[in-house]
């Protein structure tokens, strides 16, 4: 029941009443870098939704834009004040680089906005010198999802490494007989900012093989690879209530 409610929430209409707190926005835009300076990694990323004319602060994306390329923005509206970067804040938010859509690079001065001072928080892993806590048993079949940017199989720093580290710690303790990695791709076309967008079917296989290769380097358990197009959203918490993010995933299933 809880899962159904969560899925209904994810599927709520986006565009019409999309500006209310918690609502989902999704658009394609050329990103703008605001050169705010509160130390390392403190600059701002802004993106304008052409349909609504609104500018959003998308800086909290774990995978940040490249100012030479458009981004697919997916995020939820917050009620945070636009103090840091000069625009209302999307959080959670994702910015997938669309490398086939070049942009004119554009940088704004800080204009008095401080950006955000970087601090290590959220999804990060400890050095290898820090022992991982052994997850308690009993151990049974379990699935671990990891997530990707649009049409991309690259492991996202301070997101996927965190999810994989947790999964690997559990796998090392649980000692399953086999791991089955299934890659998914969101191949059903959707209209976003007047563009028809869909992931390549082959990215499902690329995701599965990327995760499988990484697992082979980390655990001594046989790994089988599968892939599947036409991915549907899930309500897994680490997708951060972003349907598009939940579709772009690979799943590690531990079998005993």
């Amino acid at each position: 029941m809880k899962t159904i409610a969560a899925l209904l929430m994810l599927a709520a209409p986006m565009a019409a009443q999309a500006q209310e707190t918690g609502s989902l926005v999704r658009f394609v835009a050329c990103p703008t870098y605001r050169d705010a300076d509160s130390g390392r990694k403190s600059g701002c990323w802004l993106a304008d939704d052409r349909a609504t004319g609104r500018r959003w602060d998308v800086s909290l994306s774990p995978y940040k834009p490249d100012w030479n390329f458009a981004v697919l923005v997916e995020g939820r509206v917050t009620d945070a004040k636009p103090d840091a970067c000069g625009a209302p804040v999307l959080d959670p938010v994702r910015t997938s680089r669309l490398l086939d859509q070049p942009c004119v690079r554009h940088m704004l001065p800080a204009e008095g906005y401080p950006g955000r001072r970087y601090k290590l928080q959220g999804r990060y892993i400890d050095p290898l010198s820090v022992p991982r806590a052994v997850p308690p048993g009993p151990y049974a079949e379990r699935t671990f999802p990891v997530y990707f940017e649009f049409d991309n199989d690259f492991l996202i720093y301070q997101y996927d490494d965190y999810l994989l580290d947790k999964a690997v710690t559990w796998i090392r303790a649980a000692k399953p007989k086999k791991l089955v990695v299934t890659g998914f791709a969101a191949t059903v076309p959707e209209m976003v900012s007047g563009q028809r967008i869909a992931e390549r079917p082959e990215v499902a296989r690329e995701r599965a093989e990327t995760i499988a290769e990484t697992l082979r380097r980390l655990v001594e358990v046989p790994v089988e690879v599968k892939w599947q197009a036409g991915s549907q959203p899930t309500a897994e918490p680490d997708a951060d209530r972003l349907p598009g993010q939940s579709q772009r995933r690979a799943e590690i299933r531990a079998l005993f």
Binding site: I125, L155, R217
Partner: peptide, 15 residues
Amino acid sequence: VGFPFDPKQGYALPL
């Protein structure tokens, strides 16, 4: 080796 991943290549470190 400080961490198990190569964040630049997007994989666990090679063995």
